[in-house]
């Protein structure tokens, strides 16, 4: 029996097909967010992996910012519950999850069953979010996906003091004109994200083990600095970006067996 989880985020859509609530059958990511063709595309893409039909799906659960507008779902859940459940599926020992999404940062504490115990989110400000990294990548003219590797090559981290995206932008530009190394600048940008995220994580309390989910978890530079800031190792699964969709598929399975 198959369940399908779709995570329609602000900058990307993710989907996972789960067999019997236990085995990942197919996964797909489309780098388009809610309000675009991303949701439809990711659905087609994930079904195509093993040549499945939508009718094969016993239950479809959607999450993410586009969860209310997606037709054809059996139910919807918040991305927090889905991330919690998804990470629990990947790493059952994890009790603290940090998720950096396109426009939200979330710090979550979960119990052994993957149920949320508490959570905090950033205020309405792009500081420290995926959006912040997008803006910075654009200014220094590199691909956002390359930031992680670039940042790891830093020899002397540049201090980016502003948290406001607009001010940080001008600060980065002035550092650029002062001809600092791009690698050092990127590390500085990562440090600023790590500090912001760490503060949120501390506010929610950190219980080991800690994992990161969401697309920014793929940025090794941010993860390394965040580990430094919170003084703990952070687990990152190769499917970290899919945690929300995976959790949605798990929850869909559970809804069938309630």
């Amino acid at each position: 029996m198959f369940t399908l989880g779709i995570d329609i985020g602000s900058t990307a859509c993710k989907a996972v097909i789960l067999q019997d609530g236990a085995r990942v059958e197919a996964r797909a990511v489309v780098p388009l967010g809610t309000g675009t063709s991303g949701a439809g595309d990711v659905l087609q893409k994930v079904l195509a992996v093993k040549n499945r039909q939508i009718e094969d799906m016993e239950r479809i659960l959607v999450t993410g910012y586009g969860r209310f507008t997606f037709a054809g779902a059996d139910s919807q859940k918040s991305e927090l519950s889905c991330h919690a459940r998804g990470v629990n599926f990947l790493f059952p020992s994890v009790r603290t999850i940090i998720d950096i999404g396109g426009q939200d940062i979330k710090a979550m504490r979960v119990n052994a069953k993957g149920f949320l115990e508490n959570f905090v989110m950033n205020d309405k400000c792009a500081a420290g979010t995926g959006k912040f990294l997008d803006v910075m990548a654009r200014i220094i003219n590199v691909k956002v996906n390359d930031l992680g590797e670039i940042g790891l090559k830093a020899t002397e981290e540049v201090n980016i003091s502003n948290t406001c995206t607009v001010f940080a932008e001008s600060e980065v530009i002035s550092k650029l004109s002062a001809a600092v190394r791009i690698e050092d600048l990127v590390a500085g940008i990562h440090r600023s994200v790590a500090k912001r995220v760490a503060s949120l994580a501390f506010r929610n309390g950190i219980v080991p083990e800690v994992a990161m989910s969401g697309g920014v978890a793929l940025n090794k530079g941010v993860v390394a600095l965040l580990e430094e800031e919170i003084k703990r190792n952070i687990l990152v699964h190769e499917d970290c970006q899919l945690a929300g969709a995976l959790g949605a598929a798990v929850l869909a399975y559970e809804e069938l067996h309630k």
Binding site: S161, N162, T163, C164, F167, S170, E171, I173, S174
Partner: peptide
Amino acid sequence: FDGDQSDERIYSEAQ
């Protein structure tokens, strides 16, 4: 100009 008495994250040298 924007700034803060203690919080370094507000002030912008360029501004």
